[in-house]
């Protein structure tokens, strides 16, 4: 595993996942047709395939890819900032806050236009930030924010936000019922609109995280030592949390609550390729995207023609996979 470049290897898996995600569904697109459509030469015989690929499969693949990348990278960042192997986008309430924000936006006005769509990631981001801010405030003791307090406050906030989200949905009628499928990680939203409106959030969030590898490495030694090594700890942590919240919010906005990717992928990458966050963050991004794409393909084929919510698949397939990886790990001191 050490000899092959981990980046090449994971990019290869990601490419495979992308192709599968475009080819497989209620209608199978043969590789030859797929090639013709993707290279922009759809002859008359494959127009049906072209329509499916260009209007349905490609945007869905893009959305899932982005959500997976965001969840993988922000999971790695949360684990690093809190130095806690259980940390993930859900732990300190970011994802639940984003979910609540998104549902509020949907309940005010179900998005039929692109402008309406834009309100969802924006509200999700506001929800995520409000969650982080509130949790910080609750966890603060004097001028410091002990990690344990932060996690406890996050869990409490998460429970509250999730409850409120469920309440909103039960109260709702009509369109918002579609949000229930969304909440389980379904693809309620189609077309290029969702992809386009989360892109700015994602570029800033993921870009920020890609720059944070060195700071995360230093933070692994604890706040005291990080300061003694010259890292401005407070500023670094705030920036990383902001970037991770942006990424989480853009994933939650249209892909709903998808568990396990943000928890498992960073661990798997860390086990396989080492703990250096400068390598781990891009790898968690690629790995998260590949894993969520594969889960989404499974979601489409397992009970075809019926589709499972992808969140159900990530949990059902992710948990045993994670156990398998952990049991195979010879080096137990990886974390």
């Amino acid at each position: 595993m050490r000899r092959i470049s981990p980046h090449l290897l994971s990019l290869f898996v990601l490419l495979l996942a992308i192709l599968l995600s475009i080819a497989i569904g209620s209608v199978f697109i043969p590789p030859a047709d797929l090639w013709r459509v993707l290279t922009g030469q759809p002859p008359q015989t494959v127009t049906r395939a072209a329509v499916i690929v260009l209007t349905l499969r490609l945007p869905r693949t893009a959305l899932i890819l982005l959500a997976g990348a965001a969840l993988g990278a922000s999971g790695a960042a949360y684990q690093g900032v809190f130095r806690n192997p259980l940390a993930d986008p859900y732990l300190i309430g970011t994802a639940s806050g984003a979910g609540l924000g998104a549902v509020l936006a949907m309940s005010v006005n179900w998005p039929y236009t692109t402008a309406g769509l834009l309100a969802i990631p924006a509200a999700a981001f506001v929800g995520a930030l409000a969650a982080v801010f509130l949790v910080y405030l609750l966890a603060r003791v004097g001028k410091t924010v002990p990690t344990t307090n932060l996690i406890l406050a996050g869990v409490a906030f998460s429970a509250f936000a999730t409850g409120l989200t469920a309440f909103l949905m039960l109260q709702s009628t009509g369109e918002l019922r579609r949000a229930i499928a969304w909440l389980l990680g379904g693809s309620t939203f189609t077309g290029w609109g969702p992809v386009l409106v989360i892109l700015p959030f994602l570029v800033i969030g993921l870009g920020g995280l890609l720059l944070a590898g060195h700071s995360l490495n230093v933070l692994q030694f604890g706040d005291d030592q990080a300061r003694q090594m010259g890292l401005p700890v407070g500023r670094a942590r705030t920036l990383i949390l902001l970037a991770a919240s942006l990424a989480t919010a853009s994933a939650v906005a249209f892909s709903g609550i998808i568990g396990f990717i943000g928890l498992i992928i960073p661990h798997v990458m860390r086990l396989w390729f080492g703990a250096d966050y400068r390598r781990l963050l891009p790898l968690a991004m690629i790995g998260g995207a590949a894993a969520l794409l594969l889960a989404d393909v499974l979601a489409r084929v397992v009970m075809a023609p019926q589709e499972l919510p992808v969140g159900v698949v990530t949990a059902l397939a992710g948990a045993p996979f994670f156990v398998w990886v952990l049991r195979r790990a010879k080096n137990q001191g990886y974390w």
Partner: peptide, 19 residues
């Protein structure tokens, strides 16, 4: 006590150059 165990010795010492 409680050093991050997954870093190599080389990575750890190189972090001393952080400032």
């Amino acid at each position: 006590v409680s050093m991050p165990p997954a870093f190599s010795v080389w990575e750890t010492v190189l972090l001393g150059r952080t400032p």
